[in-house]
Design a protein around this nucleic acid. Structure first.
Lengths: 201, 201, 201, 201
DNA sequence: CATGAATGAGTCTTCATTCAT
DNA sequence: TATGAATGAAGACTCATTCAT
């Protein structure tokens, strides 16, 4: 005799187990911008008893941290491929990277601000081991490869450039969040690419 | 004739009135990274009765928003001057701006993450009128002036560059906050300046 | 499978569920004249955790309004039957009605004065649908029936008389509540009945 | 050198002293139906410091009880004279009394419900010695005099009738206060008088 | 005597967590 | 192993009262 299944899973083939179901639910709520992220609200949304959470997670924060991670992966999966070094033009490739980063942050940052205010969530989130390579590292690798292939100048500051590109993506989203009235105009992608490639001088 | 002074202010010359004292206390707690930012905790830290807060602020969020603002001003006041366009070398001036921005964000961002998770604080903060110009605008103005004086190329993408410089400052601090073990190496200021001025090509 | 029962209900057969237990407790406190009707006091009296109330009621006022209603029903249930029109003497029947009304108000009014000062309780109380007919309506119906049967004069002012009978019941209780020393002598039931039946002329 | 006068009294000749000024202010607020009857609100309305109240009254409740009394006297003063026994018709005189009582209660009861929920106010109110004769006693006296002059039957139950007349005045106002939708139709004054005079038989 | 800021006990309410069933 | 009611420790906020000036 197998143990009882949660009511929410009995007539559903979507979620293999309750743990994933809970994470998925919390992820959806975080992404949607649900105003209430209480344990009860998540359980209700998941059609599941209040207490189950504690059979799978140490506490609320662990669930939220995992949901946040899932959210990032979900967003990344929907973003399309990044360019291969050495193929296509540099302009085009950088444009792709910048566009990718802007979209990534635009969709993730709201979720982050809603959850990372809680120090315990932050700690748990940081402790999660990220499988796969985050975008940032892939950008650095791309730039290094291009430099090694001679398509960038030999002394190009690729780490610095990568940091700035990543940074501008944060910046754009943050300034939207902070603006009270109409959101400020984000910088043009072409201008960013031009600035990165040709500098100010 | 005059009413009684708060016990906390009687033997102190630091704060002229209780309102400032409360803001200063909250500011210190935010800056220090106090884990509990409850009304009670602030009152206790200020050596003051629980209820006083409501003699001076509409609610907890107003106090926190004001404390956050005070914190930003305090940090800015300790940062030294920004360069005049047309004087000194471009490298030196940009280095000053980048160093300024990094320091500013390093000291402010932790406070922001701890308070801006609460939407009501965010709203109140955004509603406060900021006297003076924020660093970001001054950076843009500086770059424009240099371009107009011919020290930058005529078609330099100054807005894009400014966005990247501001962004990298966010980036550095955020990646420190998220790192679980040893903090990652921040990009070198010289490299950033070089990348901005000369580009990758 | 089933969740835990409240400690207060475990060794008790009086209340089937906690909702009824809470209403009954609040009712008892209201009836007894408890001076403190705070949420905490009710929870303590019910031997129950502070928060439970909010699992069953929207807020404190809803509980109090329901308790008040329960109180009225409890009092009514203990009062004995009202007379049928056309049977027995008019004097005897009216005496029964007056005695009924006096007892009803004597036991209910204190509870009302303690709770209806709070507008929110008043609003919630008024919104509760009363099953069955209040005494007032039954008195009016009784008088009408007697008149239709010819036992009262054809032009008898039954509505006015009913209003006065109901009113005197209020009056008696109110004057007891307001009196500081010894309570004033309530009017004799027989005198009231005589006055109602024969008038002053 | 005379002591300082309260700011509110300096440019005013209306109130002889602060005590009366405070009572008058509280009375006005009670009568108007002000939703907030806090010490602070009264002081603000009176243009006076928060603390003065305690120079003239033991506590908030004493002030409210006195204000309530003043309210009753004010209302009574605006109501016109009551009839003399032996003059005019009985119908007309009783009509005057009933009308008087209805108006009196209509204007006083709201104030009472707002304040008498607080047991301490009730106690203080009951302890106040009422100068002059309340309406109730004057009604009883009137009826007795009419009976002694032979205009009412010798065995008329005047006390009972008075109680009913007073009671119906309560009743009318209370039922208006309790009604949720449209207020119920109050009984006709003529019907009341007829019922009192001629009875139901 | 008036002032009015400070006091702090007390209020309602939320919500993460536990645990008998 | 799921259930979901019970728990109770906070939390924000109010307001009568005091008292140094």
């Amino acid at each position: 005799m197998s143990p009882r299944r949660a009511a929410a899973l009995r007539n559903s083939q979507g979620a293999a187990n309750l743990r994933e179901h809970l994470i998925a639910t919390a992820e959806r709520m975080i992404a949607t911008g649900a105003d209430t992220l209480t344990v009860r609200a998540v359980a209700a949304e998941a059609r599941v008893a209040d207490g189950v959470l504690y059979n799978y997670f140490a506490d609320k924060e662990e669930l939220l941290a995992l949901a946040l991670h899932a959210h990032v992966r979900t967003v990344e999966a929907g973003l399309g491929p990044l360019p291969e070094p050495g193929r296509g033009t540099l302009e085009e490739n950088l444009r792709t990277h910048v566009t990718y980063g802007l979209a990534l942050h635009r969709r993730c940052l709201p979720a982050f601000t809603r959850t990372l205010g809680q120090p315990k969530v932050l700690a748990r989130f940081a402790a999660i081991d990220v499988p796969g390579q985050p975008w940032r590292d892939r950008l650095v690798e791309y730039l290094r490869a291009e430099r090694d292939q001679g398509r960038l100048r030999a002394d190009a500051r690729v780490d610095a450039a990568a940091a700035m590109i990543v940074g501008v993506c944060h910046e754009v989203v943050l300034s939207v969040m902070f603006s009270v009235g109409e959101p400020p105009q984000p910088p043009d992608v072409d201008d960013l690419v031009t600035a990165v490639l040709h500098g100010l001088l």
